[in-house]
Design a protein around this nucleic acid. Structure first.
Lengths: 354, 354
DNA sequence: TTGAAAGCGATACCAG
DNA sequence: CTGGTATCGCTTTCAA
């Protein structure tokens, strides 16, 4: 192990001087600087990050906590954050979290010198105690996809987005509009699905369209569950002509289900998703797009600002309707007949799934 | 900041004792242990990772260097690695690297106490100097998707995989089989595309099928480039009846191109990819599957072993042909005419939702 | 079983 | 400008 002392010895100077050339602090005469630099190169010396962190109190690392396995959108956010964080010379430490409870531990580790200089939190709700702690201890922490009064972060108006989706469908003449989303029981405490649903219900009500309970189906997040849920909807005696899925993942599952029973999308069934993840662009899914990479980037900027002592606030990012090929005017399909014919079959499938 | 000294003071013991209960080392009388634990809880104490690292020489962190932005497969590998690494109580530090040159810096930081305990490297080639250093200094480092004699890692037989793909196509009766892959000029030094191509050429030759230069197209990696390349193939006076794309990303681009000109997949054109990324499963792409998440998991295990002093070796992981819906017997397409008529619909159902 | 003290490898202050 | 030294918070002997 080559240490600063060894470098100093080789260069024939004190450790302080080596430290000065390392950090470009203080003033060092050109000659000395050169000798030190040569010693550094000769020894292929690299300062110990741990020692540095202990001494300065800064780690040059930020943690990002997120439930990576849950949904693709998390990855896109991560990508944006990683880019900005690296560019600023910080390291990004991945903190994969299974349950919100684990989050508390992560928050504690920022509070402590020697772990991270700041924390990014994706989608997860902060326990109340952590919120208080962050606020009072002025811990650099930025929320992504979440709004907590008094804490810095970036989020979108999920309810407004849900409204956008429903209004698009209403505008196409649909009235039997189903909602397919998460149930309340997810272990992470995600609640964007519920807020999007609130927007959907509000839009329907505003348009004078009744919200039918049998057209609102929820379950654990995931494509296969969504497929089953959609199959159930399609097996209804009076199936919906449009489905608003609370995420693109679920929308894709709904499309799978439609395909399985020979229902044409968008001819006989319009499907709209939410998020605009990469696969949405690929399959031509109509969706409510929210900035994903950008949310990570912006959050990283806010965090960097906080670390440097400039307090940041909560920001709302814009989401937009992106119309692609899975929504259409109601009744534009040409396969009505064949669909009817297959109704028996589709009912069977529905019950198998359900 | 609450330190071990404060805890010790509150508990009325020496810091050594606190350290002992913290690490379950040495022997501490039950009563003392309880008092110390109470002090820890009361002060909400968390030991400083930096101080610990400096003192023990272990950071409990491993770095993972990868070109995250380049391709989706990297993310899947990362996921696998992250899981195992976290489970072992280590932290995963993301090192986004733009060019292989940057890699050298990362390697240096492992050599040094106080940065990482080990390093995972995805797909990138290690500079020769780094290889030597790793070997001689016995730095815990594991390669993913790369084979370097004498270094630990997991990789697949890309050439064998290419052969698998070509043989599948040959078996379906195709003879005009195109290859669509990366050109040699990528800044990362990736070369799996070239090896897959070698397998393709070998298979064709073994089958007595001529490798036609005009059917081999390459360009920078990416879906849109692939789309253009495929369009070029399809515009040939004598177009191919099958395309082997060196990655799923590129295969998807090829399918896009086919759809754009009304060529039915797999009726008129078979397309096979490589990797089996998530989107492949979704679009029903026939492909040569390689273990992605598993490669990350396995690599993490090897790294952990190396960190604990048990040297690991290079391992070859198996890849398999996964036949889905984008390859078919040559000439199985419906009559050109009807394909044209149903262009919009069949494109959606055939490739988008197929 | 426990306390005291010597590092670990940097930074930063204080003299000179 | 530069060298020496206290300091950061913890682990780990070494005695007691």
């Amino acid at each position: 192990m080559t240490t600063i002392a060894r470098v100093a010895a080789l260069a024939g100077v004190g450790v302080g001087t080596v430290s000065r050339v390392l950090n470009d602090s203080g003033a060092v005469s050109p000659g000395t600087r050169r000798r030190v630099q040569e010693a550094i190169d000769a020894l292929d010396y690299e300062p110990s990050a741990a020692a540095r962190a202990l001494s300065t109190g800064r780690t040059l690392a930020v943690g990002i906590v997120a439930p990576f396995a849950t949904r693709p959108s998390v990855i896109e956010r991560l990508r944006g954050a990683a880019q900005r964080i690296s560019a600023a010379g910080y390291q990004l430490v991945l903190l994969d979290v299974d349950r919100p409870e684990h989050l508390a531990g992560a928050v504690r580790s920022v509070a402590v010198k020697g772990r991270f200089d700041g924390l990014l939190v994706i989608s997860l709700p902060l326990p109340e105690s952590a919120v208080a702690r962050v606020r009072s201890a002025r811990i650099p922490l930025v929320l992504i996809d979440r709004h907590e009064p008094g804490l810095a972060g970036v989020h979108i108006d999920d309810e407004g987005g849900g409204r956008l989706a429903a209004e698009h469908l209403l505008g196409l003449g649909h009235e039997r509009i189903a909602f397919l989303g998460d149930d309340e029981s997810n272990p992470y405490g995600f609640d964007s699905s519920a807020r999007r649903r609130a927007g959907y219900e509000a839009a329907l009500r505003d348009a004078g369209v009744e919200v039918r309970p049998e057209l609102v189906v929820t379950g654990p997040h995931g494509r296969s569950v969504a497929r089953a849920l959609a199959a159930q909807l399609l097996a209804l005696p009076h199936p919906p002509t449009a489905i608003f899925a609370a995420s693109d993942d679920q929308a894709v599952g709904a499309i799978d289900a439609a395909k399985a029973v020979g229902v044409d999308v968008p001819g006989d069934l319009s499907v709209i998703g939410f998020d605009d993840i990469e696969i949405a662009r690929y399959v031509g899914l109509t969706t409510v797009a929210q900035p994903l990479e950008a949310s990570g980037r912006r959050a990283a900027e806010l965090l960097l600002a906080e670390i440097e002592g400039r307090p940041a606030a909560a920001e709302e990012l814009q989401c937009d309707l992106v119309v692609r090929e899975t929504t259409a005017v109601r009744g534009s399909g040409m396969m009505r007949e064949s669909v009817r014919q297959r109704e028996g079959e589709s009912a069977m499938r529905g019950s198998v799934y359900g």
